[in-house]
Simulated scan of single mutants.
Amino acid sequence: MRNWLTKGLPSAGLFAGPVAWLVSTQANYALVPWVCAQRLPAIPVLAAVLVVLSLWGGFLSGRAYLRPPEADETTVPAPDGSRAASLDAPEGGRPHRLVAAMGVLIALLFALVIAAQGAAGLVLDGCER
């Protein structure tokens, strides 16, 4: 796990944000009877935790985006045995920076959506009909 913190994980934001939103949406519907009976604001608390989870995935993707390529990762072997193509180039076959940038943006988008749904839990108490 220490390796993820130092090098990042390019696709972390691609998965953490949508999964956090899925859990948030399902929990918002599942917790309505309990929230109405207990009168506790569980939805905004859960939303805050899931926003942090989504942003954590974006952070890991951001670390991967900002990480400079290592010496052995900057080039790939050409057919003749020489070092030819850059890994960041499309012909290198490993578009890590594109996936990492998309991960950061998607994690931010889903964090915003989860925060908006959680803010509704501050206004609505779950017992409306």
Rank of each mutant, 00 (worst) to 15 (best):
V52C: 02
A100R: 05
R83V: 14
S54I: 00
R97M: 10
P44T: 05
A37P: 00
I43D: 01
A78H: 10
H96D: 15
L98V: 15
E91C: 09
A37V: 10
A100C: 12
C36P: 02
E70S: 10
G81I: 07
Y29W: 14
V99K: 01
A101G: 11
L50I: 05
P41G: 11
P95C: 12
Q26H: 13
R83L: 15
V45T: 02
Y29S: 15
G58Y: 08
A42N: 01
R94E: 14
G62H: 11
V32L: 12
L66P: 00
P33M: 06
A101V: 13
V35F: 06
L31V: 09
R97T: 13
D88Q: 11
Y29R: 14
A30E: 09
L60M: 08
P44R: 04
V32I: 15
A100P: 06
L98D: 08
W34P: 00
A48I: 01
C36L: 05
G93V: 07
R94L: 14
A27H: 03
A64T: 09
A27S: 13
R97I: 12
T74G: 12
E73D: 09
A89G: 13
V76T: 15
E70G: 12
Q26D: 13
P41I: 04
P68M: 12
S82T: 15
S61L: 07
L50F: 01
L46Y: 05
P44D: 02
V32A: 12
Y29V: 15
L53A: 00
G58P: 02
E70V: 03
L60N: 05
A42H: 01
A48Y: 01
A42F: 09
N28E: 10
R39C: 01
V49E: 00
A47S: 06
M102W: 07
W34C: 00
N28I: 10
G81N: 04
A27F: 10
S54A: 13
F59C: 05
T74C: 08
L40Q: 11
L31H: 08
P90S: 10
P41T: 11
V52T: 03
L53Q: 00
T75F: 15
P44S: 03
L87R: 15
